[in-house]
Amino acid sequence: MSTLSSVYKKIIIRDIISETQDVKTFKLGYADGSPLEYEAGQFITFVFPKHELAEERRSYSFSTAPKIDDVPAITLKRVTNGEYSRWFIDHAKPGDALLTIGTSGYFTLPDDLGKYKRLILLAAGSGITPIFSLLKRALQEYPSLQLVLIYSNRTAADTIFYNELIGLQQEYSERLTIEFLFSTSPNLLRARLNKGLLENLLKKYSHDDHAQSLFYLCGPYDYMRMATIVLQTEGVPPENIRRENFAIVKPVQKRFPPDQEQHAITLYMEGNRYTFEVQFPETILQQAKKNNIPIPYSCESGQCGTCAATCTKGHVWMWNNEVLTDSEIQKGRVLTCSGYPVGGDVVLEI
């Protein structure tokens, strides 16, 4: 077990619901009875001990929304070569215990959502999980907002939350429109989301008023890459596009900090003060781990945001950032997993 095990909390699986043939929802709660706090669109990271001083981490999105759903829950799809997704789907049972570092994630609704006219959500397969969470919160809390969900699957039977979504569409018929796309459809023009179809849907729902639309994307890498390119080509401001990556493929580091000297890090976290030295090629997170400093993390490649901190003094240079928006960076948010101190010493808060 990792020497950082004291920062983990125990989660209990309270109940399990079958959604489709290879998808299940798992209702969760802390073993000590304390509330499991999270925001719509966020995820929870589990720690799986492998052997002495070794562990693996996996993050799963909440499909529930706080104050709307009584019990927090995650929804998983079996992945063919996924060791832990197969355990959840094939072997997990109510009462099983898991270790977690808690909840995190930036795939959430902004505080200024009310200034937008519409929320356009794009999901493929199990990418609906955080999208469903966001959808429920937006419908409940923003009555003037128009919502569009573009959801791709193989068939209706393979569509996670199909009946629930139909129910929401009927309940909020004046505000919610859902475009179901099935790859088995005989109408090949609507079988899969492609460049031409997305362009047409964008004209239909965003009305060339893209600055007033906020887009959330979740699905396979190629799906989101295509959608992002189309949206930006059609004039959607980059800051209006939010993405959530499920299959993390660690990129190769091709950029290196302009300052590769050693600098001091002072870190304030949960009432504790830590000091350590960082020098390239070690990132802030890598050096913290070597010093047994329990910075939360998951992907270790600038793609999930679990390790984010606020820089209150100095400057942190990041070789990869697929999570933080420009406005968040302006507020001092940085990713410790891809970050290096440059130009002097740094003070961080988590």
Rank of each mutant, 00 (worst) to 15 (best):
193 L>S: 11
249 V>C: 01
184 T>I: 10
187 N>H: 12
193 L>F: 13
182 F>V: 09
196 G>A: 02
229 I>P: 00
256 F>S: 10
223 Y>T: 08
171 E>K: 15
167 G>S: 06
173 S>W: 12
193 L>W: 07
178 I>P: 07
252 V>R: 12
241 I>L: 03
195 K>H: 05
213 S>H: 01
245 N>C: 10
200 N>I: 06
182 F>G: 13
174 E>S: 15
249 V>R: 06
202 L>E: 01
242 R>I: 06
214 L>F: 07
215 F>V: 04
220 P>F: 04
252 V>Q: 14
226 M>N: 10
213 S>L: 06
170 Q>T: 11
197 L>S: 07
217 L>Q: 08
210 H>D: 06
247 A>S: 14
253 Q>L: 11
230 V>G: 09
190 R>L: 10
166 I>D: 07
244 E>G: 04
218 C>L: 00
245 N>F: 13
180 F>P: 00
233 T>Q: 15
228 T>D: 01
205 Y>I: 03
250 K>H: 15
190 R>C: 07
203 K>R: 13
198 L>Y: 11
241 I>H: 03
229 I>L: 05
245 N>V: 14
245 N>R: 03
227 A>R: 03
256 F>P: 03
189 L>N: 07
209 D>P: 08
238 P>M: 10
206 S>D: 10
258 P>Q: 05
232 Q>G: 08
232 Q>I: 15
168 L>R: 08
215 F>K: 02
183 S>N: 08
258 P>F: 00
236 V>N: 00
246 F>S: 05
182 F>R: 13
239 E>I: 06
253 Q>W: 15
223 Y>W: 02
241 I>V: 11
231 L>T: 05
168 L>Q: 05
252 V>A: 15
248 I>R: 03
178 I>G: 07
210 H>N: 09
167 G>F: 01
166 I>N: 12
233 T>V: 12
233 T>L: 12
249 V>H: 05
223 Y>Q: 03
185 S>A: 12
249 V>Y: 00
227 A>Q: 06
250 K>W: 13
213 S>F: 08
250 K>R: 13
198 L>C: 02
166 I>G: 04
214 L>G: 06
256 F>H: 13
193 L>C: 12
232 Q>A: 15
202 L>F: 00
196 G>M: 00
210 H>S: 02
210 H>E: 05
204 K>E: 15
233 T>M: 12
175 R>F: 01
253 Q>K: 15
215 F>C: 07
224 M>R: 06
182 F>L: 15
178 I>Q: 03
199 E>D: 05
250 K>D: 14
227 A>S: 14
186 P>G: 08
233 T>N: 14
248 I>F: 06
216 Y>W: 09
176 L>I: 09
231 L>H: 03
201 L>I: 04
217 L>Y: 14
239 E>V: 04
215 F>T: 08
180 F>I: 00
169 Q>F: 07
210 H>M: 04
203 K>N: 10
188 L>I: 01
242 R>M: 08
210 H>W: 03
202 L>G: 01
240 N>Y: 00
231 L>G: 05
189 L>M: 09
228 T>M: 00
229 I>R: 10
177 T>M: 10
217 L>P: 08
173 S>G: 10
227 A>E: 10
246 F>D: 07
230 V>Q: 02
165 L>S: 06
255 R>G: 02
201 L>R: 04
217 L>E: 05
197 L>V: 08
